[in-house]
């Protein structure tokens, strides 16, 4: 047996990466503080550096791919959506024609006006996505349990994530099973509507039945025994430095608020 792997449980879980090894609560504090600061500043000169900073942290944490898979999509949607909405909204006043797309005139001013909004949304979502991309759910739940959340709630959160994966797999099998008895699932709307109930029914019933079985199985693992639990896998509690970091982040957020008001 791999004793290195087993030994890893004897000490706090560490990856050797500064950002990843921050306590989830510290990370949450920092990310939330910066997200709110973007909301407060509402300025592209603040938003763009923040977006870049998020990318850099993700890169340094070695989670850029996970981060950018999600963030890239958000960026595309937000940029397109806000730009188009702004272009539609900008009709009157002193405007400079910019480009003409099939007879639809775009104006330079609406681009500039859109940028503040776009970068604030991207700065805000970037901070949050960074948090979730660099914090495993189980670590977050572990930290919440340490803060007093019940382990039932933590179980429900974590198990739901796995349930979604399992339900996806189940729906493929059910679809195949219904096709195999002759129910058409491809074709026009009417044909597909007819296949809706035969595929959804087993999925729901199966989910209900397996929930009951899972309750029994977890019960056999002493899930509801009223004792203080131990944790095989432990995270380092937030150090004084980390606590200071959290406070600093919130102080910075408050400072942006003050700055916004004096300006």
């Amino acid at each position: 047996m791999d004793s290195e792997f087993i030994n890893s449980f004897r000490s706090y879980q560490k990856t050797g990466n500064f950002w990843l090894d921050l306590n989830p609560i510290t990370k949450l504090n920092i990310c939330l503080a910066f997200a709110f600061s973007a909301l407060i500043m509402l300025d592209w000169r603040y938003g763009i550096p923040l977006c870049l900073a998020c990318c850099v942290v993700a890169l340094l944490a070695g989670k850029f791919k996970v981060f950018f898979d999600m963030y890239g999509k958000v960026c595309m949607i937000v940029i397109l959506f806000v730009t188009i909405v702004r272009q539609i909204g900008m009709r009157t006043g002193n405007v400079t024609p910019f480009i003409n797309i099939f007879g639809w005139q775009w104006y330079l001013e609406s681009f500039v006006a859109g940028w503040d909004r776009i970068t604030f949304i991207l700065g805000f979502s970037g901070s949050l996505i960074l948090f979730f991309a660099t914090t495993p759910m189980r670590d977050l739940m572990y930290s919440f349990e340490q803060l007093g959340m019940s382990h039932e709630n933590s179980f429900i959160m974590l198990a739901s994530m796995q349930n979604i994966i399992d339900l996806k797999k189940a729906s493929v099998t059910i679809l195949e099973s219904q096709k195999s008895r002759g129910i058409e699932t491809d074709g026009n709307i009417l044909v597909r509507a007819k296949a809706f109930f035969p595929t959804l029914g087993p999925l729901l019933l199966g989910a209900i039945a397996s929930t009951e079985e899972k309750a029994i199985a977890m019960d056999a693992r002493a899930f509801s025994v009223k004792r203080k639990h131990t944790f095989l896998r432990e995270l380092a509690p937030a150090s004084t430095t980390q606590k200071t970091l959290s406070i600093a982040a919130w102080v910075f957020c408050a400072a942006t608020l003050v700055f916004r008001f004096i300006r």
């Binding site: 792997f5 087993i6 449980f9 189980r138 179980f155 974590l158 198990a159 796995q162 349930n163 399992d166 899972k214 199985a217 977890m218 056999a220 693992r221 002493a222 899930f223 025994v225 004792r227 203080k228 639990h229 131990t230 944790f231 095989l232 896998r233």
Partner: peptide, 19 residues
Amino acid sequence: SGIKETVFEEVALGLENLG
């Protein structure tokens, strides 16, 4: 359980619950 990422932790779950 669906909440553990390695078999080792899965096997340990009952013992964790027992404290």
